[in-house]
Amino acid sequence: MKSLYVFTEKSICRLSVLSGTRPYCDTMNEFAIVTKDLTKSYKDVVALENLNLSVRQGEIFGLLGHNGAGKTTTVNLLTTLLVPTSGTVEIEGVDSSKSAKDIRKLIGYLPENVQLYNNMTTMENLRFFANLSGLKKPEARIKEVLDYLNFNSHYNKRIGTFSKGMRQRVGIAQAILHNPSVLFLDEPTSGLDPEGVRQLRDVIIRLNADLGVTIFMNTHLLSEVTKTCSSIGILKGGKLAYQNSMNSTLAEFPDQDSLEDIYLSIETAD
């Protein structure tokens, strides 16, 4: 398996925790993401209400919910794209209300339906985002990341010629170029064909396993959550209706045959 060679102190630390060589790192928070009473309102509409969420380091967390449940609003608040009406967001212990810029250095983000610049090549697109993240001469790093994603042969091709799945790969590449601690993926498999879904799932699992990156993903595909996530949360009408690890969830609902049944029983409960 190919691996990324550029590690930050934090990612080395995280790897050592995951591999069991060190039980805990002093420089590391137990939780990568913590929200306290996070609320977002648009005029009279409350999109998200008092969200109290915590995601541990190195987890793959899946946020589930119907359309309009507040999933994208949550990701936008966590990535500092939106300012909360009230409540707080902490990423790796950094408070977004005090230092949003520092949070932006720690995170990678892949929005839903990312298009990128069609009249530019993979390299030109990635160089731009790498420079924005503060990487000075990013060419070697870009090649390394594309190699990791098995995408090096498309280095000098224009994005306009790519399929949705290929664009999504470039999207993942831009999100991990700067070696983020936390990766946010908004409906990452949306619009992909089954082969594209499988490839992207493999990439997500590898990223988490190889680098210990904490991954927060929004999705409504329960099959993806079952195969990918180590813990889940369910949003219902802008409120967090449920949060637990995947194993505990399955143990908690022994009578349900699948995650879909569990999800529906939580969704329909008052």
């Binding site: 932006r104 983000y109 990128l116």
Partner: peptide, 16 residues
């Protein structure tokens, strides 16, 4: 350009 290419969120989620 950035709004049509849906890259504006990628730009604003970086330390810019």
């Amino acid at each position: 350009r950035d709004r049509k290419a849906a890259t504006i969120d990628l730009i604003l989620s970086r330390p810019t």
